[in-house]
Structure formats: C-alpha cells, structure tokens
Write a protein that binds this DNA or RNA. Structure first.
Lengths: 325, 325
DNA sequence: ATGAAAGCGCTAACAG
DNA sequence: CTGTTAGCGCTTTCAT
C-alpha cells in the first residue's frame, strides 16, 4: 500500500505538501501539483479511506437494515436508497436482518460504532411481533441519526417514511363495490404484522366483507381452496403479493373465469405480478420513492440534528389490468 | 461520542489501561476491569471502528459487487455471502453495478481505498459485452484480493466460483430426447452474454435442435409466438428464467397442453418459477452455495496470498415438476 | 509556497 | 499491574 509518506519521500517534499497538492490547494505551486499528481498516478496511490474517515469524523456512508432481501419490495427500496445516496456522494452499506430480532440488533451494533453516519431501518417481522423496541430507543439515546421506513414503531419519535396503506385499501374495496361486486374476500399472508393491520383495517370497510388470513403458505392455500368451493365470491383483494399470486393460480386451476366471475387486485411491487398469467391488477407502492425519501430525510437530519421530526407519506396507486379486473 | 480517553480521565487511569481492561487482558486486575466495564456501560461507550481499523490495518469487511439486485439469483448469492461472512465474523458491504461498466468501476474504486479487506465480484452485462476488463487487471495489480463469481473473464488469473452450465444444458436435452421428444426449441433472453454461451453450447447438442434468442422481452415474445404457431414443437428448454416464464405463459394462452403436447424446463433460481402456474421444472443453480463458496475462497486468499489460484465449480440439479414435464 | 506538528481514537511494545 | 510512548494515514493550523 502506497501512502502520502511514500510519495513525499520520493518527491523530496513534506507529507502536508503532498496532501495539499492532491487536493488541489491554492497554497501549492502548479509545478509541484503536477509532479505530485503524476507520481501519485504512477504509484497507483489511493487515499486510505479509514484514515480519512478517522480524521474527518465522518464516513459519508449510510447503514441500511433491511428485513428481507428476497422480497422485491425491499430490493426496490434498496435500489432507491442506493441511487439517492450515490447522487449525494454517500455510500451504502447493507445489513440483512432476515426478519429476526437478533440479526437486527447485531446490524445496529455494527452500525453504532462509527462505521456509518446514519442508519435507515425497517424493523423485522419478529421485532414487530414481539414488540421489542428497546434497541431503537437505545439507538436514539446514543445519538445516532436514523430513519424508519415502511414499518413503524409506536411511540418512537424519529423521522419516518410510510405508505398510506389504510387509504389504499379503502380505495380498492370501494372500486369493487362500485363495480357491483358484492361478495368480496380479503386474503392475506401478513398475519400478525403491523403493516398488515392497516391494510386490513382499510379493507374491512363493512361487515359483508370476508377475511382469510394466515401466516404460512400451505395452510393458506388449503383454507382458500375451501372458501372458494363453499362460498360465492366475485372479488378477491390480496393484502400482499404472495397471497395474491396464490389466489390467482388457484382460481385459474379451478377454471373460474377471471375477471368475469372473480376479479382480483393485490398489493404488490411488480415482479411476481408482472410475470403472472394473467397479469395481476395491483396497488403499486412506489418502493423506489420510499428508499429515496428515506435517504433525503436522513441527510437533512445529518445536516441539522435539531430540526423537528418528520413523517413522510408515500402514496400508492392502483394499476389496473383489464385481464384481472 | 465517548472515547477511551474520556473513560480514562473519569477513572483516573491511563488510556492503555482502559483499552486493556475492556479487552479483558490478563495484565489488568479484576477490580480495575470491573470498574472499567461498569463505567463503559454506563457511558454507552462504543469502540470507534474507524480507529480500530486504521490501527489493525484490516476492516474485517468484504466488498461485494453485484450486477443486479432484482434478479433472484443474485439476491440468493448475496444471502449466501452474507451468512457465510457473518459466520466468519466478517461484515459485508454491497455495491450494485446495475449491469453497467461505469458503476462497476466506481464500486471497485470505492473498495480499493482500504474500506474492505477483499472483494467478491460478478461482472456486469455491459462489461461482458464490451469485454472491457482492464479494471480487473488493475485491481489485481493493486494487490487487492478478489474472487470472481458466476460470470467469468477470459485470461484473468484469479480465484473463481462458477456453475457447470454446459453439462447441465446437455443433461436437459438428453432428458428430453430420452423422453421421446423430437422437436426441441431452445429459448433465451441471454443474447450476447457469456453465461448464455455455455448454456447454449450445451443445449445445441445436435442440429435438430432449434434456437430462439433475443435480448429484449417484447421482441422475444413476438418471435416465440410465431415459432409456436408455425412449427411443431414438443419441448422447450429456456436458458434463463424470464424466457422460461414468458414461454410458459404463452403456451398456456394458446391452450396447448403442458406437458402432454409441450414439456418445459428452465434455468432458474426459484422465485418466478415457484409461483408460476403450473410450476416450472427447473435447473437449480444453488445460488447460496455460490455465495458461500466465494466467501470461503476469499478468506483463504486473505490468509495466504501466495496460494495457487483456484476455480470452484458448483453443480446444478434438475428439479422436476410433473405438471410441466 | 512549503513544512512542522498536532491530533483523530485506538493498540501494543516497552518501561516501570 | 499500570503507564508512557509511538504510530496507523491523513488533514489542517500555524509557522517559516
């Protein structure tokens, strides 16, 4: 590894001269700058990031804790975070909690030790279910700037980016009703998740609406099959993509006509629903925006730690597809 | 931020005593250790990672450059990398190249400045197509340990983890032939990609086998539709998941019986094919293993930079599904 | 225009 | 058992 010292020695100048020359300081003569630049290039000099960070007391890096990397929704958020961060000359470092509380805590510990300037975080399933939130409060106590996205935690007074789930759900149901559909079934694989709560609340607009929720795919499919066989249903609203796809496939398997006999709409972020046949109509969540907004909020917080806490809401949109509606 | 110095002052001992006490050194008395630990906890002391890294000249961090985070194959690899790294007490930092040469280079630059101990890298589409590989050789010249995975680069003498694409393809075709299928169509959306080359090579076992490749979904679908209408086909082998799904949906749309009239097998990593209807039969690529093996190779390289370069091959497996075969 | 020196927070060799 | 000191590589203030 070649350091400033090495260059200085070879150029017969001091370390500080080299440092200034490389950062194009006006204090240094053009001639010296030239020579220095040339040698730096020749020797493949790269500033040691660790040393720079230590000196600057900033890393220009954002830590991201994400529950699940197999969920297209989160990869899209991640991609939004990445590009917004890059735009602002920040790097991103990702820790995947795999929906476990332990991993989430480990990730936070790692991020708390000066590796990053701030943290973007979506709590894991487990964290939500156990409602174990002490580590978030501790993070705050430690004074580490962070932004919560997608999922939320009660009473935690930090910057947040959320989605208008409740309202979106209402809109979907209203759409079905306006379309003359009377026997609506709401399905979900989000049992016990806070995020599911809001969607559910919005969906159960009146008591004619039936609900089937489960926390596991196989069981869900079995129960759904029964429901479809035993009950008249003319519309299905899936609160998550997976239950939407499973419902779609089941309906097709039963040779039930979509959308004439049963219409389907699902919360989704695109990948499974895009390549399903027929294509699902979806409630699009603009995951990229969620990521970008989170970065934005964090950078503002980094600039001014005293500014009042903010909550940004990202609106969903209904994306109709005539083959399922 | 609370530092060793702060603790030392408050405890009326030297910085080094505190440092040693916190790392449970045998040189320090139990009493001092206790007191120190207590205060550290009370003051929420966290060692500054940047300083530790600078001092140790190691970051215990692996940099990963991945072409595409929306591809389930890569997220699976990433997950394999993450857990294997964690197991070895290494952290992971991810840079997404979005299949562009520029991003890939930027990622490498960032990783070259001491932020990571070594790099895991899958070249982007663009890099492969342009065959622009100078930056890899430069990385090697800089002496940064790295491992190539999934995609490969000619003449680049580094550790590699690859998949036995060629052989797998041959096996699939052989399976079709043994099954009495005569009119096999090979489809692909991997046009111009090296990885596609090997699969193609293996698939075009004899000249009765027809090929349709494209680099874009819409065009692919149009041509495929024509093919299916004009030609007798009793088996389709898709060299990538997307073309597989598109073919599947098209066949279903045409009311052609699967698998009686047409059988389908596709290269895949699970997500789209798992939730397709009917489920696709696939060539599974064991993406997690690819990730884990890459980490393994890198850690070995980190330990001994002089050990001979290695290439690990991860074997695929055929996963049959009676509804498509 | 250049250099000396201090210091970011930590570890570790060495001294006491 | 504890402390002193040097130094990781860099930036920056303050001489010169």
């Amino acid at each position: 590894m070649v350091t400033l010292k090495d260059l200085a020695k070879e150029l017969n100048v001091s370390v500080s001269t080299v440092s200034k020359a490389l950062s194009d300081s006006h204090e240094i003569s053009e001639k010296t700058k030239e020579k220095t630049l040339e040698l730096a290039k020749k020797r493949n000099y790269i500033p040691n990031n660790t040393a720079v960070n230590l000196r600057r007391k900033s890393t220009r890096t954002i830590g991201v804790i994400i529950p699940n990397i197999f969920n297209h929704f989160y990869t899209k958020i991640l991609s939004g975070i990445e590009s917004e961060a890059k735009k602002n000359n920040y790097k991103t470092i990702v820790s995947i909690s795999n929906e476990t509380l332990l991993s989430e805590k480990e990730g936070l510990d790692f991020f708390s030790n000066g590796s990053v300037d701030g943290v973007l975080l979506a709590p894991s399933d487990e964290t939500e279910k156990l409602n174990e939130v002490e580590h978030f409060f501790e993070l705050k106590r430690k004074g580490i700037p962070f932004v919560l996205f997608d999922r939320y935690i009660d009473n935690l007074n930090v910057d947040k980016v959320i989605v208008n789930d409740l309202e979106s759900s209402r809109n979907v149901i209203q759409y079905f009703l306006d379309d003359g559909r009377q026997n609506i079934l709401v399905v979900s694989l989000l049992k016990n998740l806070k995020i599911g709560d809001l969607r559910k609340q919005g969906a159960l607009l009146d008591d004619t609406i039936d609900l089937l929720e489960h926390d596991e795919e196989i069981g869900f499919e079995i129960e759904l099959r029964e429901k479809i066989e035993n009950k008249k249903i003319d519309a299905i609203f899936a609160l998550d993509e997976l239950s939407g796809i499973i419902a779609l496939n089941l309906i097709r398997q039963k040779q039930i006509d979509i959308p004439k006999e049963v219409a389907i709409i699902s919360f989704s972020q695109g990948i499974l629903s895009k390549y399903s046949y027929p294509k699902l109509s979806i409630v699009n969540q603009y995951a990229k925006e969620i990521g970008a907004k989170s970065v934005e909020l964090l950078l503002e917080r980094l600039k001014d730690n005293d500014k009042p806490v903010e909550t940004k809401m990202i609106k969903t949109s209904l994306e109709f597809n005539q083959t399922t509606l």
